[in-house]
């Protein structure tokens, strides 16, 4: 419940504040969002499995973002930033899909 409230608060805050993303952070923000979404879906799946844990969620959330950002940063330094960004997005997208499939099985039994 608190997660849903937090999500709503964050969305409202984003709409109200309308910040501009610093140029240095612009390549990393979409990756961070994807990574966080992955963690969110993972947490949701864990919750449905009955094994959700706040601490684990927080750690996985933050480490997901950190690792994804680091990979993209490394790719930028190596000159393969766009390619590595695509790779990260693909991997995270696959994970989101598999998590979504698990959630679907839980919710619809199908």
């Amino acid at each position: 419940m608190i997660a849903v409230i937090g999500l709503l608060i964050g969305v409202v805050a984003g709409i109200l504040v309308q910040p501009t993303v610093p140029v240095q952070l612009q390549p990393y923000l979409p990756i961070a969002v994807i990574a966080a979404l992955d963690a969110l879906f993972g947490g949701l799946r864990a919750h449905l499995d009955g094994v959700f844990d706040d601490k684990v969620f927080a750690v996985s959330f933050l480490s997901n973002i950190l690792v994804a950002g680091l990979i993209v940063f490394l790719g930028d330094q190596l000159g393969v930033g766009p390619e590595l960004t695509t790779a990260v997005v693909v991997v995270l997208g696959i994970r989101i899909f598999s998590n979504a499939a698990s959630i679907r099985r839980h919710l619809f039994k199908a």
Binding site: V21, P30, F61
Partner: peptide
């Protein structure tokens, strides 16, 4: 647990915030 609950809410709020910001961007 209560503190970590708040932490989860905070993280998810950050996610929502970043999501909206990125969409607007």
């Amino acid at each position: 647990r209560r503190r970590s609950h708040v932490l989860v809410g905070l993280l998810v709020a950050m996610l929502g915030f970043a999501l909206v910001v990125q969409l607007r961007q």
